[in-house]
Design a protein around this nucleic acid. Structure first.
Lengths: 209, 209
DNA sequence: ATTTGTTTTAACCAAATGGTCAAATATAAA
DNA sequence: TTTATATTTGACCATTTGGTTAAAACAAAT
């Protein structure tokens, strides 16, 4: 029997299954995905998937854990680091977020599937367990407002704005591509542009001049 | 036999099925939804669903059509109306978008499900068929940049930003609620706040001072 | 080489599910 | 009241699918 608790360093067959599952679940969701399809993608027998992960639900849960654990810690440790200035934080946040998703293309689809079901409780739990405190970021904003560096903004709306503008373009990728044809630029180019445009857009909005 | 092409004014049983389907599909997606569940939600026999809509896929497609047809025309006729000023347009866009989704809560989940599959082609087709031209909005932006009213911004990024910040909060609703607890405000309050905050945030960012 | 335990596979199963159909019921026309 | 037509239903079917299992293949230790 293997150690099924150590999700961070999977090897061999187990790793194959995880990667295949990320791809298929991200593309088709929990219900749309077929165990057979995941097995095929991993190049192994279907029974092996059950051998390692017991059930479809367990596998899905494992994928959720790996996905969000590869995600939140980095982003959130940045946000709750009090020694980084607000503007720097915004710049790094956008870059980190977009880069992270570029490297893990399954995340947006996966996130959407997971959120549009009831599954956000699980994500919220992971938040709490991670010991991360968005308060640091919120307080930093309130501080800058008092100092007069930025105009008054609701911290919650600001963070929601930032996350929205980072994630949603990945979800709406095919739609946006339709728009982009006009400008004859491809999607990756669009994302690189975005890494520069977005921080400017955000900072421009809150910076007092 | 009824007229199955007139999707805009359904009545009786057919309407019941449509409303039930919107709810269930929006909540669980095409694959997650069960025909039986839709029938139950509508309070009718399962065979009736097939009687009116033939197959699950056809029903899903019908829901897509109704959903997006209730959506794009209004938003897009606003955006491509050249007699409304850019700033007014932004204000009305945000208000219209959020209100529309508030009244049709199934839209975000439904949209996410549809986008995270391949189904964006269909949406793009509806775009083209609707005879709507986002060019008007784009040109308006470029015009205001020349005039010097706003700072130089990429029109595509701007519209993507606007749509992102309107839609994503609905998708991430359960997550955001987690944040909001801190401020002791509920979600509807948050949305009303947002209708005021968002236009300010956007205009603030592009307005030249 | 034999034993012991682990990994992998093919064949199989029970349950769920989309879809069909013939019969029943309501509706309207003659 | 008939007759014809549209609507609704319960029973049924074929297929798909998650999951099981017994046996084969493999690896490691004695």
């Amino acid at each position: 029997m293997e150690n099924h608790k150590n999700n961070t360093q999977l090897q061999g067959t187990e790793k194959l299954i995880m990667e295949a599952a990320k791809k298929i679940f991200g593309r088709k969701g929990l219900d749309g995905a077929r165990m057979q399809e995941i097995a095929d993608e991993a190049g192994i027998n279907k029974a092996l998937v059950h051998y390692y992960f017991r059930s479809k639900d367990k596998l899905f849960e494992a994928v959720i854990n790996e996905t969000f654990l590869s995600f939140f810690p980095m982003v959130m440790s940045l946000m709750s680091n009090p020694s980084i200035s607000l503007f720097q934080k915004i710049e790094r946040f956008v870059d980190l977020y977009i880069s992270l998703i570029q490297e893990n293309p399954h995340i947006p689809g996966f996130m959407a599937q997971e959120l549009s079901r009831g599954g956000a409780d699980r994500v919220l739990d992971m938040f709490k367990d991670s010991g991360i405190k968005p308060e640091v970021f919120f307080q930093q904003i309130e501080q800058e407002i008092k100092t007069g560096t930025i105009v008054p903004v609701s911290p919650v709306h600001l963070i929601v704005n930032m996350i929205s503008m980072c994630i949603f373009p990945f979800l709406a990728r095919p739609l946006i591509s339709g728009f982009l044809i006009r400008d004859r630029i491809d999607y990756d180019e669009f994302l690189e542009e975005r890494k520069k445009e977005l921080p400017k857009f955000i900072i421009n909005s809150i910076k007092k001049k």
